[in-house]
């Protein structure tokens, strides 16, 4: 059978659909996306079916919470895409567009999480994925200061944080809160946010707080509680050949503002970046002040 010849436009179309050329002649990699990394077991079985039928009976789990199926022969691409659609498997992106939004599990299962980052990521897929941009655009959401989803390494990153408050009547004067604070806030801010007075009562100094929640977790009688939850916002992060951490531009941003911030960041990126340039590189030229005005 004569193989169909693909021209450049068709190849580009295949790429935007998450089909990448392998180094081996006539073979392609199917890139899928899993918003927030949350994948139903039933759908995982469908991946197995596709990998067996079209690939070499294995998948590659990407660093962006996607699953890739290599070794798809060029003559099978269309039929694979049909099956994929039938199974409800989502295509990933390549080329100049925004990528799968990644997240840690957050409070769905993690004891450190302030928010359910996974659920939030699934909700935001529509806003964040597949937008045409000058190079690429990556968004990450992480549920606490541990940064497991690496918001600082993405073009746009959200990091949940929590402000604690103490009920002194419930306190049993064990001093554990001050002990954990010494390890984190004192390291992050130079001074601890919690110190004990002479009666072993905690005194809270918000200006030194790292908002990471260890005091709330360790308190044996739940005298420390989380009063307020919000997000730090980082822009301009990337890794690649020339890595650059994102810069923090806001603290305690409300969850409901996130979709707008994503939209405006993509918009601003398109406005300031040259073709082939990442957000952070463009920001190095145009500065942060204007970016904050436009995005926040």
């Amino acid at each position: 059978m004569a193989l169909k010849k693909y021209n450049e436009t068709e190849l580009l179309d295949l790429r935007t659909g998450g089909v990448l050329k392998q180094i081996q002649k006539d073979y392609f990699i199917l890139r899928t996306r899993i918003p927030g990394g949350h994948l139903k077991a039933e759908k995982l079985k469908k991946y197995a079916i596709l990998a067996k039928k079209y690939g070499k009976d294995y998948v590659h789990v990407s660093t962006r919470q996607g699953i890739e199926i290599p070794w798809i022969h060029i003559k099978n691409i269309n039929s694979l895409l049909k099956d994929m659609k039938k199974f409800g498997i989502l295509k990933g992106a390549c080329g100049p567009r925004s990528r799968n939004l990644i997240a840690c599990p957050g409070s769905s299962v993690c004891r450190f999480g302030f928010v359910d980052a996974e659920k939030l990521a699934m909700k935001l897929d529509k806003v964040a994925f597949g937008k045409e941009v000058p190079k690429k655009f990556k968004v990450a959401i992480t549920g606490c200061m541990n940064s497991c989803a690496k918001p600082q390494e993405n073009d746009l990153g959200f990091q949940a944080q929590g402000e604690p408050e103490v009920d002194l009547d419930a306190c049993i004067h064990c001093t554990l809160c001050a002990k954990v604070c010494e390890k984190v806030c004192a390291r992050g801010k130079g001074q601890p946010a919690i110190v004990m007075d002479k009666d072993k009562k905690p005194v809270y100094r918000k200006e030194n707080c790292y908002f990471e929640g260890d005091c709330v977790r360790v308190c044996p009688v739940s005298a420390w509680k989380t009063k307020k939850v919000g997000f730090k916002v980082y822009i301009g992060g990337k890794v690649g050949r020339f890595p650059r951490f994102g810069t923090e531009i806001a603290e305690f941003v409300e969850e409901k503002k996130i979709p707008k911030i994503i939209e405006k960041s993509v918009e601003y990126y398109k406005e300031i970046a040259n073709k082939g340039e990442r957000f952070g590189e463009a920001l190095d030229r145009t500065g942060l002040k204007k970016a904050k005005d436009k995005i926040l």
């Binding site: 004891r111 554990l176 954990v180 977790r217 360790v218 308190c219």
Partner: peptide, 11 residues
């Protein structure tokens, strides 16, 4: 030890 066991026992 005191930090982790306290938090986990509470949880």
């Amino acid at each position: 030890p005191i930090k982790n066991v306290t938090a986990s026992t509470k949880e």
